[in-house]
Design a protein around this nucleic acid. Structure first.
Lengths: 185, 185
DNA sequence: TAATATTTTCAGTACCTTCTGAAAGGATAG
DNA sequence: CTATCCTTTCAGAAGGTACTGAAAATATTA
């Protein structure tokens, strides 16, 4: 089969998507598999993915399983074919929710917990220490608080975005833009 | 020098910060150096960092240079000491702006450009193709558009957040929360 | 100027993640 | 049941990133 313009365009998208994911700490191949399913009209099977991405069966299998666990793709069956096929979640907004929920749980929550623990640790010393040592503790406490506050903000923003959801994003953006203009000094 | 509670707490924070950064595709050591400077009252020199993080001089030197390039830390000089010392940008909001600006430039812009290019590529074929092939192209175009729209939204949100800035974030959050409540079905 | 202190660079090494390929496991058809 | 088709697993290999340590470069002092 010759390479159609459509295939060339899709290959370009898939490659770039993989590169972007790699720089965000996500396996390149996993992202490429997801991208390929995302742009495909028909479900794809393991052999399709192996051929198009030139990777091994084991690699495809492992990454498919992870993508299913994330909830970013689903198994589907074709009548009269034993093979398993896969389709991607194609609602970009849903994808956003899935990814941010999981990454917040894995990477934002732990750092928030750690910050709280760090604050607790130094609490008793704040009352006992004095002089330059006390200054150091107070400053450290301040910086922890600021970081904690910022992470709270990020969390709230994501929650809000997800709650607002796709249908009302346009309205939200308008509100935000107005806000930006209205409070400009 | 014995390990004070303060030092233990800071070490905990530094370690966790490094782990978090690593899962976001940022070098663990670079993040640890930044975290250590962030929680320190005094500027630190290469030897301080080498000792506390147990890494080599070359490693510290390279990562310090990168952090300076990012604008996340600055060189400072101590009277009567030849050594170079470093301090971190401690305004969390400023840090956020620096990091998001750079990462958007490196990782969001390229994928947006690629999506536009992918769209352009298939534009001519849209008029010529027909039947199932045409369906496939139309669907692909739709998915590209949705993704493009989503990335635009993300960009706008970051721009707005940065423009609003630290002092007015509280007001922004209140506005957003009201919005969330007001449009809830 | 030379002597000394400090930083930077980078070739080689270590480490960690991802990938391969083949064997084992599992499902379906005959 | 056996044969066939397909998927999963995982030990070892490959590849890529980060690190070390020492030599070179640079800066400071005398």
């Amino acid at each position: 089969m010759e390479n159609s313009v459509l295939q060339q365009s899709q290959a370009l998208f898939v490659r770039r998507w993989g590169e972007m994911a790699a720089s965000w700490g996500i396996s390149r191949t996993m992202a490429e598999i997801h991208a390929l399913l995302f742009v495909s009209l028909q479900p794809l099977c393991t052999d399709d993915l192996m051929e198009q991405l030139q990777v091994s069966r084991g690699n495809v299998s492992t990454n498919l399983r992870q993508l299913v666990t994330w909830g970013l793709i689903q198994r589907v069956h074709q009548r009269g074919d034993r093979k398993e096929y896969f389709v991607a979640e194609t609602d970009v907004w849903e994808m956003f929710e899935i990814i941010t929920r999981e990454r917040r749980r894995r990477e934002i929550e732990p750092i928030i917990e750690t910050i709280d623990k760090c604050s607790e640790m130094i609490l008793p010393t704040l009352t006992s220490a004095d002089g330059p040592e006390r200054d150091e503790i107070v400053l450290y406490q301040q910086r922890l608080d600021e970081m904690r506050e910022f992470l709270n903000l990020v969390n709230s923003l994501f929650n809000l975005l997800i709650k607002v959801g796709k249908p009302r994003v346009a309205v939200l953006m308008k509100t935000l833009t107005n806000f930006g203009l209205a409070t400009r000094e």
